[in-house]
Design a protein around this nucleic acid. Structure first.
Lengths: 346, 346
DNA sequence: GAGCTGAATTAAATCGATTTAAGAGGTTAT
DNA sequence: ATAACCTCTTAAATCGATTTAATTCAGCTC
C-alpha cells in the first residue's frame, strides 16, 4: 500500500523539468550532466547554462531510473554471521569506512548460522542489484554468481577471494611465546566448527607445534561447541578441562572472549592468572587490554581486514580482471599480563 | 564503466519473456502475479498457467523497474555514530533482526561525529530511496523529510520518534543501590557531550540525587571529553579524579567501558574494587559479566531498543498516522561484584 | 544553386514493470 | 435487432534517465 504523505518529498525535479526550464530536451541535458561523448559538439556556453540550472534547481537524478538503464547500483552486499559481536562489528566498521570513501553503499544481512537463510540471502541481495558480496565468518559452499570476497573464508572457489589471517604465523608467534616462557603442558581450546577459522587455526597449531617440538595432549584439548558472543564461550569448557585433573600451565584459548571465560573459570577454581596458569587469547578485541589481568593475545587487524576486503571487491567490480584467490593478513603478538613464566604444575 | 562478465547473470527472465512464453501480454501476467484488482476477471485456469510459468522460468521481477513505478523500496537508512563498538552494534543487530522479518533491507552510514557527513548522508540515503531513517546515538538537528526514529535521540522534532532509556528510572536504580550500600561520597563521570545520552543522563542523576538526599560534589565530578570505544574512555579521567586527592567511596561511571577503565586506574593506584571503591557501570555490555571484578551496572536492553525502533518506523511507513514522539525503555539494575558496602574513605 | 560538411539539437527507442483505457467476442435484456 | 453488459485480453502510457539515429540550419565549395 503506497503511502504518500503530502508535501513529504516536495515537487521532485526530474530531468524533464530541468530541460523544460531551459527550453531544451532531456537528452541534451543528460548528455551534458554526464559528460557523455555525445555532448562533444555542445558549445561550452550551453553546457554552462545547463549545469547552472541543474545546480539552481537542485536536480538529483532518480537513482532507480538510472539503474534501470545503466545496470550499476554502486551497492554491495554484506553477509555476516552476526553483526553485534566483537569480531564482526570491527570488520564491518572497516568495510564501511572504505566503501563510503569510494561512494558505495552496502546492504547487510545476518544469517546467524541458519543455512537456509544463507542461500536465500545471496539470492535476495542479487535481486537488489548488489554488484558484489562480502561474507564475514561465513562458509560459502558454491561458486557465487557475483564477485565475492570472503573474510575468514577457507574454501577455494572460483570467483572468490578469501581474506585470511596467516594462521601459520599466528601459531608460530603464540607457541613460541609460550615455549619461551617454558610452558610444556599447554591446554588448547578448539573453536566451534561453525566458526570458519576454527579448522585452519587448529591445523596450523598442530603443524607448528610439531615443528617447534611441542606435543599436543588430546586430554588437554577441549572442543567448543556453543556459539555465544560472550565469555560463556570459554567458561564451561575450561571447567570441563579442569574436571579432568590433568595438570597444565597454560591455555591457548580460541579467542579473547573464550580466554576471558577461561580466566574466570580458573579463578573460581582458586588458580591465579598468570602465576599458576598463563592464558593466551586471540583477536585483541577492544576489551582485551583492559581486562584484569590484561590479555596476552594474537591480534587480528579486523578493521583492516574489512578495508582490504572492500578494496579487493571494488577493484574487481570496477574492472580488474585478475584477482588473488587468497590474501593473507599478518597477525601480531601482543604480550600483556595474562601470560608469565611457567612455575610448576597445577 | 560497466563491466559485464559474460554469463555472469545468465539470461535474465523479464516479464515480457514470461508473457511471450505463455502467448499473453506483460500486462496480464503482471496483473495476475500481483493480484491486482484488474486481474478480477481473469479465469482461474489462466491464473494458474501464469503462476506455473513464473515459477518454472524462475521469474524475478526487476527491483529497479518496479521501484521506478511504485515508489516503494522496502529499504530504510541507518545513520550511526559508529558501528563497531559495543553500544551501536547490538542495536544494529536488533534492527536487522526485526527488519529482515518484515522483508526490509537497510543501508548503513557512519558519520563518526563529523557534522558535515551527517547532513550529507541523510541526503544520500534519501536519494537511494530509503523510506525512513533510524539514527543511533546521533543528534538530529532539523526536522527530517522522511519518517525518522532516533535511538537515544533527545530533541523533540516533528516527524521524529525518540527511543530513549528512562534515565530517571536508571538514576533511581543506581543511586538507591549506592545509597543502600551507605555510599555518600560518590564520584561521577559525565559523558562526552557528543554522546547523545550524556546530558539527559546527567540531568536525571542530579534530579534524583536531590530527591533521595545525595549531594553531588563538583570536585568529585569529571567530564569525559574523548571519544574512544575502549576503556581508555574512562581511564585518564579516573586518574584525573584521583589526582585531586578528594576522598570518595564509589564511582558511577558513564558506561561500562569507562567503568572498566576506571577500575584499571584505581587498581594501579593500589585501590581495590569493590573493597575500597565501588564502581557502577552503565549499559551491561557482553563483557561486563566477565570482567573481574564483574560489573554492577544499569542494563540498557540495546538489542530490544533496536527492535522497537525498527517496528515503530515500519509501522509508520506502512500507514500508521499517529506516532509517539518518545518511547521510553526500562533499564534494569544488574548487581554483580564491582559494588559493595562503603568501608571508609580512601 | 545543388551538394556537402559540421555544429547543435531533437525525437524516439530503451531499460522492465505497472496501470488505465480500450477492444473483441459473446450473452442477455428490451 | 440493437443496445447493454459481461468476460477476457491487449495496447499504450507511464515511471525517469540514457543513448542512438535523425533532423535542422549554417556556412562553404564548385
Amino acid at each position: 500500500m503506497q503511502v504518500k504523505k503530502p508535501g513529504q518529498r516536495p515537487q521532485v525535479i526530474t530531468l524533464k523539468a530541468v530541460a523544460q526550464h531551459l527550453g531544451l530536451t532531456p537528452g541534451t541535458v543528460s548528455a551534458v550532466l554526464n559528460d557523455s561523448p555525445s555532448a562533444r559538439s555542445i558549445p561550452q556556453e550551453t553546457k554552462n547554462r545547463i549545469r547552472a540550472a541543474a545546480t539552481e534547481l537542485n536536480y538529483r537524478p532518480n537513482f532507480f531510473a538510472r539503474t534501470l538503464r545503466n545496470k550499476r547500483t554502486y551497492t554491495i552486499g554484506v553477509i555476516a554471521e552476526e553483526i553485534g559481536d566483537s569480531y564482526s562489528s570491527p570488520i564491518i566498521s572497516g568495510l564501511e569506512q572504505y566503501l563510503r570513501n569510494r561512494d558505495y553503499f552496502f546492504l547487510t544481512v545476518v544469517h546467524r548460522h541458519d543455512p537456509v537463510l544463507l542461500s536465500r540471502y545471496s539470492q535476495l541481495l542479487s535481486e537488489r542489484g548488489v554488484e558484489g558480496i562480502i561474507t564475514v565468518d561465513t562458509t560459502v559452499q558454491e561458486a557465487p554468481m557475483l564477485p565475492t570476497v570472503a573474510i575468514a573464508g577457507h574454501k577455494k572457489l572460483k570467483g572468490v577471494t578469501n581474506i585470511v589471517l596467516d594462521h601459520e604465523r599466528a601459531a608460530v608467534l603464540a607457541l613460541n611465546h609460550l615455549k619461551e616462557l617454558h610452558h610444556e603442558r599447554i591446554a588448547f581450546m578448539r573453536g566451534n566448527p561453525v566458526s570458519s577459522d576454527a579448522k585452519d587455526r587448529w591445523d596450523a597449531i598442530c603443524r607448528v607445534a610439531g615443528q617447534i617440538g611441542l606435543t599436543i595432549d588430546p586430554e588437554l584439548t577441549v572442543q567448543i561447541d556453543t556459539d555465544d558472543p560472550t565469555p560463556m564461550l570459554g567458561y564451561p569448557f575450561t571447567k570441563q578441562l579442569l574436571a579432568r585433573h590433568k595438570p597444565f600451565t597454560a591455555i591457548f584459548a580460541y579467542n579473547d572472549m573464550s580466554a576471558i571465560g577461561a580466566i574466570r573459570a580458573l579463578q573460581e577454581q582458586g588458580l591465579r592468572v598468570p602465576q599458576d596458569v598463563s592464558v593466551l587469547g586471540f583477536d585483541d578485541i577492544p576489551g582485551a587490554a583492559f581486562h584484569s589481568p590484561s590479555l596476552t593475545t594474537v591480534r587480528q587487524p579486523l578493521n583492516r581486514m574489512g578495508e582490504v576486503a572492500a578494496q579487493t571487491l571494488l577493484d574487481r567490480i570496477e574492472g580488474k580482471k585478475e584477482y588473488p584467490s587468497e590474501i593473507a593478513i599478518e597477525p601480531e603478538l601482543v604480550v600483556r599480563e595474562s601470560t608469565a613464566n611457567a612455575r610448576g604444575s597445577c
